[in-house]
Design a protein around this nucleic acid. Sequence first.
DNA 1: ATGGCGCCTGCTCATCTGAGCACGGCCACC
DNA 2: GGTGGCCGTGCTCAGATGAGCAGGCGCCAT
Lengths: 321, 321
Amino acid sequence: MPVLDEDEELTAVRVAELYYDEGRTQDEVGALLELSRWKVGRLLAQAREQGIVRIEIVHPRARRLGVERALRERFGLADAVVVPAPDDPTDSDDAETLARVAQAAADHLAAMRPVPRTLGVSWGRTLAEVADRLQPGWAHGVTVVQINGGVTLNRRPGTAASTAATIAQRADGQVVLLPSPAILERIQTKRAIEADRVVADALARARSASAYLFTAGAADDRSVLVESGYVSTDDVAELVRKGAVGDVLGRFVDADGNIVDPALDARTVGLGLDGLRAADTAILVVAGRAKHDIARTAVASGLCTVLITDDTTARALLEDS
Amino acid sequence: MPVLDEDEELTAVRVAELYYDEGRTQDEVGALLELSRWKVGRLLAQAREQGIVRIEIVHPRARRLGVERALRERFGLADAVVVPAPDDPTDSDDAETLARVAQAAADHLAAMRPVPRTLGVSWGRTLAEVADRLQPGWAHGVTVVQINGGVTLNRRPGTAASTAATIAQRADGQVVLLPSPAILERIQTKRAIEADRVVADALARARSASAYLFTAGAADDRSVLVESGYVSTDDVAELVRKGAVGDVLGRFVDADGNIVDPALDARTVGLGLDGLRAADTAILVVAGRAKHDIARTAVASGLCTVLITDDTTARALLEDS
DNA sequence: ATGGCGCCTGCTCATCTGAGCACGGCCACC
DNA sequence: GGTGGCCGTGCTCAGATGAGCAGGCGCCAT
């Protein structure tokens, strides 16, 4: 498509005004500006091409289909869902962003075909929001398995458990909880708890789930792992020093997706990252500026097949080679 | 047009995405979402109506046809030209705004039919920009008359004269200058200068011009009248105290368009405001936030038949009842 | 329960629009 | 100076779109 010269550009603007603002038909515009109908059509096409005419869909539940396509192609994803970030560019309006992404995740889950027989889920603020936005009856008879440990140490108890339970309940399904802390103090305790029949059973079912729904955490003090008391702020600082960009299923990884601290990782209960990498369907839900780095790592190192996120994060992923 | 309920709204969003983002045809969309082609069409129409789909023309020389229509109807203007303000909402990017408005004024002048035989013009920063943007040959044989006094007291001389001269020269026409200060110290001097044959002749031709092109000044220290030394900053403060919102042709008016200081006005040389009010065509060119008040007054009190301004100013005029 | 009312839906047809094609002018190269 | 190729333009025609209309369904009042 040839570029418009300056005169044509101005004509294109006038044409676009009459066509889109005034609602004239293409030959009316042609008659008015003494152009052929076809010339008018071509100018309109070029104006859209060059961004003189911008058509945007303004709605919290709108999606960015173009960006989604780019993500799929760039990272070989099976699917991607990108929702617009709130306009408000001043303060980090992360609550609204999270709400939109969570809604999109809920929609995506409800629209999944075939419906997974067993769905493995992690936990955290993001997934709590997703669970909350699922319509009762979003599916029927889905078994939901908690895939990483999460007996909350402080705060209101049961966030981890209730996320899984809510998702299951709203699908008239069973829930399989993983009754274990996320990270244990000593490796021996971890081995012992994994030997427990209930825990072992849950882990087995986690490994055989037909789909996973999980989120990722940034390596900072606002991480749920910190707030829950599993790791201290000092630990986080140390992990960051070693290259950690965030955690997936409680496992801290560096920019390349490698485990940062194998000893810590060995004390972490739940599905391993290879479990995700081997999955047919692994849906990562991630929102907000703080999580750009971990999102990039997760996507680039093949932890997910489906990414659900906000526009800003998506663009951040696409921007660097 | 009935309002969309929540479900339909969501469908409308999906429809709009497929139609505008993906470029599908309406029945393709219908097939995909299991809707009839007609339903799809109606949803698209409603989405545009309700602002879910926003089509905007992004170009410095684009115009706001909707706002223009509103201005014409609200103030009984013969015509209105509104250009978009620069996006940059942070600093008062008035230079760019002025450039756009001046360009629009030049375009409007060049497109005027019938071409005025005699064009009365005022002077100021704004009109200097307009003159500068007129293409040589924008018209043929237009006589340009300077309608208010403007022998500049300080700064580079002749801004007033050169504006008129440039406009005339680029139309291969004559220029009639008004060789007089804008405001005189003493009423007697003013009478004497008006009695001068050249001045009297210029004023007579100003009164009989077939169209006027003029601007307005805010009542503040950045006014050209202050910078030229005709009024002091103290004078301005006093005028503001008496209710002045700005000046038109060097004549300070209050919010209702009445002369604020009759004694000062009597010492001001040039066409009177009634001369503008009686004109068939009086084009007011005004840009920038500082001039909202004087613009409102000028438009509301019938000083112009055509308004050329920026989006922000136009909206300010339309917002208050 | 039942009739009336009004809204929503899907159809017919006329109009509008975009893809493909042929012509003519312009430029560059021979 | 001639000639070939390329770009830009306007046409043909098929497919897409929107206005107007009739049937059907639900809702409300009687």
